[in-house]
Design a binder for these strands. Structure first.
Lengths: 339, 339
DNA sequence: CAGCATTATGTAACTAGTTACATTCGTCAA
DNA sequence: TTGACGAATGTAACTAGTTACATAATGCTG
């Protein structure tokens, strides 16, 4: 035994020396063992085991020019939507032997640019971002580092990068139409912060005022707690309104909770609709009517698109995913149609 | 202008040639600009810009011996617990200039070992795993690649790797004690799959039968839907039992939902307690009594521990986090104390 | 103005692998 | 016996950076 010398990690050269062959042969044992005769192969393998040799990823990367790393930039992981998206993205990339590096941005484009720089510096060959607002620094970085970029969570064929996602404007329209079709005319809209969240902005832009329609907008923190508070803050408005349109399910849950606390019966007295369709949306009381966005499909699609781009060089084209209205039990015609 | 030559990415040598200095000088401009005179610095910078030079991460890594990458292996991202954990972990690592590579294992140790191999091959200097069961291949890998490993989601000072987490046994005992203190004696226990989930197993092991205590165990898929079905399946048992102890909040939510559907009043007719304290646990109806596990603190702590280990070489010691009983409104003394 | 310190820059040897090309050796056919 | 071929292996030059050391150029002091 001669392990005592191992202060430093063993290198290819060490293995070569110990087994009395050249570095090339050791490299072959690692990468194309069949090219090496059985006897030497075994000898080299023994040396590898004895020295506990492990090839340096960096050295391999420098030769192949590949890191097999994809970076993802999302506002937060602590949100079922992004978590599910990343779960699917990671799984899909894994099937293509790509690993996923994640960074969170809090929705701030400047932070995104900084984190993107980090990701690229640690070797990301491609970046997945979400939302449409980028900082200037981001474009500079992409130009410099020549990384592939796919933007998700929205759809816009005219965007600087390929986009994979929903037409957020249309999605909120779907929700609104459902309410208006039922006969609702005076509707409160509950939405998360518009600042740094262009998906919210896009969804809002879908809610245009048509004749006889009265919309009141209420911004709140994007959380159950926030939505509770906002619903509580609606106060008297609550009486003048027959439905609450929540721009995401988390908010709808808060609204439902607060309405129940105040003894308002949903959907008899007031209707509620969300957007997203979280796993738990089906299980709140009453089960939530919502517009389903299949984020895990978005994740898969994004993963495939990115892998194809990186691997085969075919830059993906923008891909539109459709939101699907899921009618459950929180919406009904207004009890006292007011118009 | 002379950009037309840029078929290949520009290297340090290219920049050196173009600006008429040596490679060392270019390297200095990049890493310690103050050592270079203003005039040459500007000249070099100009060349860098013109050639759109971007230093190769791999080449840097090979010299520094550092990749600044930490790998995390979790069963899934599509679970608020792990997502929050990773969110905190990522954020903490980011403050130490480390990036997080994630891989999901579905709780399968074999899959974990394979993914761990991938992570190490793409350069991870440390691995964060969760749960205590490892595949043999995992140990071999760690030995070979000399990576730092921190195990989370449980606490065991005698474990092969430093552990950061809860004493799952004690956590479930806390929940059980709360119920017994209230006077419950006949309790149904709802838990997720034991296979490939040692946290569940540990929690179960905390539920020892003491005199006069009757526990019935019911395994189900770890989801709201699964818990609904399981609760429905309880059928007649439901009458003989005064409380349901759910080994995680997701299950408790399913139980609550199904109980309401069946017209059982919680906590008057039956008590329910969970473990985890999800963000929404406070907002279900009625608000869920549970044992809070601060996974984001676990994430922060793990991040710090890992960074210290990697950076300063101090291997962390096992760290125990306490679960905290949060009494809300789903538990009460049994209405018809049976004994 | 010599002497010496300081600053700026260059040379070349590192990091740890991969790989094109050259060499050696044995086998078989002519 | 010689030439050809293929398999096995070695040599050395790559990959793209960093850095120890050497050298040149400048400034300041005595």
């Amino acid at each position: 035994m001669g392990d005592m010398l191992s202060k430093r990690r063993a290198t290819l050269r060490d293995v070569a020396k110990r087994s009395g062959v050249s570095v090339a042969t050791v490299s072959r044992v690692l990468n194309s063992p069949l090219q090496v005769s059985v006897t030497t192969r075994e000898r080299v393998q023994a040396a590898i085991d004895q020295l506990r040799f492990f090839p340096s990823p960096a050295a391999r990367a420098i030769n192949s020019g590949r890191t097999r790393l994809i970076g993802a930039l999302v506002p937060t992981l602590d949100n079922a939507i992004f978590a599910r998206f990343l779960d699917a993205l990671q799984a899909t990339l894994a099937t293509r032997d790509l690993s996923l590096v994640v960074a969170t941005t809090e929705g701030d484009p400047e932070a995104e640019a900084v984190k993107a720089q980090n990701l690229v510096e640690c070797g990301a060959e491609g970046l997945v971002v979400s939302g449409l607002r980028r900082a200037e620094a981001f474009y500079v970085l992409v130009e410099r580092a020549q990384v592939a970029v796919v933007a998700t969570s929205f759809f816009d064929p005219g965007y600087k990068f390929p986009t994979i996602g929903y037409d957020n404007k249309r999605v909120s329209q779907t929700a609104l139409e459902h309410l208006t079709t039922l006969g609702h005319r005076r509707i409160a809209v509950l939405h998360g912060p518009v600042e740094n969240n262009d998906r919210t902005a896009a969804r809002l832009s879908g809610l245009t005022l048509s004749a006889g329609l009265a919309l009141s907008f209420h911004e709140t923190e994007l959380s159950v707690r926030g939505a509770c508070a906002a619903t509580a803050g609606l106060q008297d408005d609550l009486d003048s309104v027959t439905a609450i349109l929540c721009l995401s399910d988390v908010l709808a849950m808060g609204a439902l909770f607060e309405l129940r606390r105040r003894g308002r019966i949903v959907p008899d007295e007031i209707s509620v609709i969300g957007i997203d369709d979280l796993p738990s949306s089906e299980f709140v009381e009453p089960p939530l009517t919502t517009v389903r966005l299949e984020v895990s499909r978005m994740g898969e699609t994004t993963g495939r698109a990115m892998a194809d781009w990186i691997e085969r060089g075919d830059m993906p084209s923008a891909l539109h995913l459709d939101g699907e209205l899921v009618v459950r039990q929180t919406t009904a015609p207004p009890s006292r149609p007011d118009r």
